[in-house]
């Protein structure tokens, strides 16, 4: 249903408008945002700046911190990569095919968003432990343990990253003009050629965005990982856990330093997402 047409404005909306409440609502929103988000984050940055760049570097390159940051970084990257592929497949079948249970599956994709991370954590630990449903099979077949090793961290990061690529690709796939595919077919392209040369290139920005979102989320993830990770320093310890360890030792400086590095990583991801989107807007118009 197209409902009522959208208003097109001959002029930019009035600066002083006849609608009331601008000062009140903006004032409240800004104060609230400042109190809850901006000032607390600024304090972190301020604390970190007290350390200086060299101080940050010293903390970030102590072997244990470095190992934890690397673990978080590499495993997040790998998990996001896996989700980029399978997320694309799932988005594809959910938008293009009709099969029984499709709507339920569509809803289940959001479960990692909705399920408290601690709940997901103990559930994954139970399944992938040596005596768990999946863990026992994998161990019997390959001899590899999953839970309480870095492989467990990977599994948890795959779980929490699942929805991102699916949910960024789905709307793009839905809006993709069927006529473009028909045009490709009338020009003699096989279905595979159409998919590879017409459809997939149009999905690249969405997949990259989903990948970056999943990666950023995974780097900071804590709850679902700690139960399955084993948390062995230098082996299966993630950066967020190390922050908590530092806090328990009342080492605020160490915690601040690690937090600053993680914050930088997530802002870089955010920046990457913005760049991808402005690039794709320039190239493909509004997506």
């Amino acid at each position: 249903m197209t409902a009522l047409a959208l208003p097109t404005r001959e002029w930019l909306r009035p600066k002083p408008s006849a609608l009331p409440g601008f000062g009140l609502t903006l004032g409240f929103a800004l104060s609230y945002l400042a109190l809850i988000v901006l000032i607390p984050l600024a304090v972190l940055v301020w604390r970190a700046s007290g350390l200086g760049l060299s101080g940050l570097w010293t903390v970030a390159t102590t072997p244990r911190v470095r190992a934890a940051l690397e673990t978080s970084f590499y495993l997040s990257f790998a998990a996001a990569l896996v989700n980029a592929f399978f997320g694309l497949v799932i988005a594809w079948i959910l938008t293009r095919y009709r099969f029984p249970g499709r709507t339920v599956l569509d809803a289940m994709v959001d479960l990692p968003f909705a399920l408290p991370t601690a709940v997901a954590g103990i559930a994954l630990a139970a399944i992938y432990a040596s005596n768990g449903w999946v863990g026992s099979i994998v161990e019997a077949v390959t001899g590899l343990k999953i839970a309480f090793t870095p492989r467990g961290i990977f599994v948890a990061l795959v779980f929490i990253g699942l929805p991102f690529v699916v949910r960024t690709v789905q709307p793009v796939l839905m809006d993709l003009d069927r006529e473009v595919e028909e045009a490709s077919a009338t020009l003699g392209a096989s279905r595979l050629q159409t998919v590879l040369r017409v459809i997939l290139p149009a999905l690249v920005p969405a997949v990259l965005t989903g990948f970056a979102l999943a990666f950023a989320r995974a780097v900071g993830e804590y709850g679902s990982v700690i139960f399955i990770a084993g948390n062995m320093p230098f082996i299966s310890e993630i950066a967020p856990l190390l922050i908590i360890v530092q806090l328990e030792e009342f080492n605020y400086t160490g915690a601040t330093a690690i937090a600053t590095v993680m914050l930088s990583i997530s802002f870089l991801s955010l920046l990457a997402i913005n760049l991808i989107q402005s690039w794709s807007r320039r190239r493909f118009g509004d997506v």
């Binding site: 945002l33 988000v37 901006l38 000032i39 607390p40 984050l41 304090v43 972190l44 604390r47 991370t117 950023a216 780097v219 900071g220 993830e221 804590y222 709850g223 967020p240 856990l241 922050i243 908590i244 806090l247 009342f250 605020y252 915690a255 601040t256 937090a259 993680m262 914050l263 997530s266 802002f267 991801s269 955010l270």
Partner: peptide
């Protein structure tokens, strides 16, 4: 700015309040 909390690790989200109000906080 409104979207900012989405891109901050949960642990960091807790940490900033410890830095403000914790025993050795501001």
């Amino acid at each position: 700015f409104i979207d900012l909390p989405f891109s901050v690790s949960p642990v960091v989200s807790g940490l900033i309040f410890v830095l403000l109000f914790g025993a050795q906080g501001l």
